[in-house]
Design a protein around this nucleic acid. Structure first.
Lengths: 203, 203
DNA sequence: CATAATTTTATACACTTGCATAATAATGAT
DNA sequence: ATCATTATTATGCAAGTGTATAAAATTATG
């Protein structure tokens, strides 16, 4: 029988992608090593050549998902040559745009979330990758107020961060799962408006 | 061997509860008919006496979960002898309190969410039970403004509802998964404050 | 081009899964 | 008490599961 080898060795990444595609389409229950192999266009035995077993494959897939999500969110914040208000707006804009806003992303997140409460290794992966969103938001919020000559106490900053984080998460889920409900920049605008209202601050 | 029959016939409900408990603790993957039977303290064969199969059991469990969630949310809104602002506050308060705010509730919700995008029957159950939260929020928001002598156009009402819905969902998830991060009424207060800010309305 | 190393397939195995069915126990009716 | 009905267990089966392993195909190396 003809094999399926491709130039370069990206099999490992292909198998990870196939895993995420399989989970997206078939759910955790429908994700077997054989189906993942089908998605990748190889036979199931190959998985054990690149991974010690299904568990390691799933962990690698979860880590890859988190990396995809957070890399987009981080880029928006990392440019600290601009005012904190702008960075805050960029963060909201990035988090409420494709590819973070997408059915696939939310579905994968929802599939993995319960696993991180059952499998210790998965929870470690999450905790390591998790850029505590509040840890991003708190300095941005504090500095945005400082830029307006207002010094907030820590408790106030924390509470604002929780609220802003909540509105972003809520809009993320709503926008991701609601088919074509939202126009191009509608979701971003709703997020920025709500954040400005919560902070009583022009951003 | 001794059997396990109990007075009254609540086996069906017991099996549904056992299913939710099993999903909560073991995840969808770990939820087999045998494990559910263990959780219920019966043998696996009994499940097929009350349900046509595992699929029907899972659907019944999902319907039960949605019913539990929405019954609490609805009660808070149904008292239309009070001002819309109060009903809105009651709705937020109920949605951001136990038992809706609880790790179990969010974990169960997350487990089922992807299934509703794979299994048509599950999506029907969700759509039937789903009290479109926006359909609750929109009239409450419209009437709250009317009570202040302000008539909002439909688009504005819709956008407000989306934002309020988002902050509630976001706080729900954050509060449910964040261990002991929040004091007794802290989450409710954060939700009401944020909503008031978004609407620029005292509620 | 021959041979070693790497990558991929093919196959088999032990175990789990959902489901079926017969046997058993408990309850209700007369 | 006897018998029919309902509820529960016990057991088995076919299909699917993750994993192991050997064979085959491909690539790299001299």
């Amino acid at each position: 029988m003809s094999t399926n080898r491709r130039e370069g060795n990206n099999r490992r990444q292909e198998l990870i992608d196939a895993t995420l595609n399989c989970i997206e389409n078939e759910g955790l229950q429908g994700t077997t090593v054989r189906k993942v192999a089908d998605y990748a266009g190889v036979t199931n035995g190959l998985i054990r050549f690149y991974f010690s077993g299904k568990d390691e494959l799933m962990r690698a897939a979860y880590a890859a998902l988190l990396d995809q999500i957070y890399s987009h969110a981080r880029i928006a914040v990392d440019d600290d040559t601009v005012k904190p208000q702008v960075r805050l707006r960029n963060f909201i804009s990035a988090t409420l745009s494709y590819p973070i806003v997408a059915p696939r992303t939310v579905l994968l997140w929802a599939n993995f979330l319960p696993v991180t409460y059952i499998d210790t290794e998965m929870s470690i992966i999450r905790n390591e990758a998790y850029v505590e969103t509040t840890n991003i938001l708190e300095p941005l919020i504090r500095d945005s107020f400082l830029d307006n000559g207002i010094a907030l106490d820590d408790k106030k900053v924390k509470n604002y961060a929780i609220q802003v984080n909540a509105i972003i998460d809520g809009l993320w889920i709503e926008g991701s799962l609601a088919g074509n409900k939202f126009q191009r920049n509608e979701l971003v605008n709703l997020g920025i408006e709500a954040t400005a209202a919560i902070l009583s601050l022009k951003i």
